[in-house]
Design a protein around this nucleic acid. Sequence first.
DNA 1: AACCTCACCATTGTCGACAATTTAAATAGA
DNA 2: TCTATTTAAATTGTCGACAATGGTGAGGTT
Lengths: 219, 219
Amino acid sequence: MTRAEELFLALRQQIIEGKIPHGHKISEPELASQFQVSRSTLRDALASLKSIGLLKSQPNVGYSVIQLSSEHLIEVFYVREALEGMACRLAAANITPEQLSRLHSLLESHEHSAQLKAGEAYIQEEKDMDFHFLIVQASHNPMLIDLLCEKLYFLVRMYRYQFGMVSNRAKQALFEHQHIAHALSVGDGELAEILMRRHISSSRANTERNLLNEEGVES
Amino acid sequence: MTRAEELFLALRQQIIEGKIPHGHKISEPELASQFQVSRSTLRDALASLKSIGLLKSQPNVGYSVIQLSSEHLIEVFYVREALEGMACRLAAANITPEQLSRLHSLLESHEHSAQLKAGEAYIQEEKDMDFHFLIVQASHNPMLIDLLCEKLYFLVRMYRYQFGMVSNRAKQALFEHQHIAHALSVGDGELAEILMRRHISSSRANTERNLLNEEGVES
DNA sequence: AACCTCACCATTGTCGACAATTTAAATAGA
DNA sequence: TCTATTTAAATTGTCGACAATGGTGAGGTT
C-alpha cells in the first residue's frame, strides 16, 4: 500500500472523529511534518479526501475540512433517500442467496442485541450501517456502491461522531429493516424501494425534530 | 486559474470527445511533455478527472480512461433516475420564479426548434441537457447539484459523443419535459418526481432496445 | 480615527530528480 | 518449443526546492 493511501485512511479517520475539527483550515506544511511525509504525498491524500467530500479546497488558498451543519446533514439525507431507494429496488432483483442469508442473520443478531439495555446506542448504529451497507452491495450497481459506501457513508459516520446523532427510534428502525428484508426476499423491488425511502425519510424527519429542539434550547 | 485546472478542463474535453480513447492507458511522461507541464501538475489534473469518474487508477500501475460499455451506461441511467427524480421533487418546492420562467422559455425554444428538420438531433440533445441541468439547479441541494452537474452529466456527454446516442424520441421527450415543467410550476413535487423518473426510465429502456439491436446486427 | 498602500511573510502551485515498483524482454532450463 | 527465472527498462511514487499567489501588518494620507 502506498504512503498516500495510508495517509488518506489515517486522515479520514481523524476527520470523521473530529480530531481534526470540521471547518478547520488545513496547513500543508504542518500536516506534512506531523505525518513525516512530503507535501506531494500529503496533497495526494488531500485530493482524495476532497473527492469523497470530507474536504473542500479553493485555488491558491488551500484545503479545509467541510463545515458540518444542519442544512448539510439534511441534504445528505435527501441524497441517501434517492440512492438507497434505488439500491433497494435493484437489490430486490440482483441480491444473491448468500447476501440474502447474511441479511437475515444480520437482522437476527440485531434483534437480539436490541433486547439488551438500550444504553449502547452506538452498537445499534453500527448494525444499522451494516444493514444499509449490505443492501447497497446487493444492488450490484458499482456506481451506486461507490457513491454510498465510499462517499456518503463516511459523511454519515462523521455526523454521528460529531453531532452525536444517536437514534431514539432503534426499535422502530428494526421493524422497518425487517419489512425491507422481507420485500427483498420476495423480490418485490417496488415495495422495497418505497420502504427504504420511508425508512430514511423518517430518520430525516426525526433528525429535523431533534435539531429544532436543540436549537430551541440554545437560543 | 491554475495550470492544473486548465489541464483538467482540456483533458476532460478530450476524454469526452474520445480524442483520448476510452479504456486507454494514460502515460504520465507522454501527456506531461505533450502539454508542457510537469508530472506533478498533470497528476493533480488526473486525480480530479478520477474524482469525476472519467479516469480510474490502480496503485503502482497508473491511470486509464474508463471503459465505456452498455452495462456501465445502464448503471448511469439508474443513478440518474434516482438523483434527478429527487432533484425534481426538491425543485418543486425550491425553484425560484426566475428559474421557472427560464424553464418555460427553454421549453418554448425547444418546441420551436423541434419543428425544424429532425436531422439536427445533437441540438435537441443539448437542449435536453439544458432542461435537466436547470431543474437540478432548482433543487437547491448542493450535493445533488454537484453529483449530477459536475460528475454524471459529463459521463452522459461522453456516451453521447462516443456511442452516438442520438435520441429517436425527441418529440416524446419534449412532451415529457412539458409535463414535468407543469408539475413544477404548480409545486407538485411528488408528481414531478414520478414524471422525471418515468422520463429517464423510458430513455433507458429505449437505449437498451437500441443497444440490443446494434449488438444483434454485429453478431 | 478610518482607510488605503505597500512591503513582508507564509502558504500554495509547480518543477525536476531520485527511489520503488511493475512490466517486458532476454536468458536459461526442461 | 514452452516455461520459469532473471535482468533491464520504463513507469509510478515520493521527495525537496523554487516560483507565484494570498494574507498581514506597518506606515502614511485624508
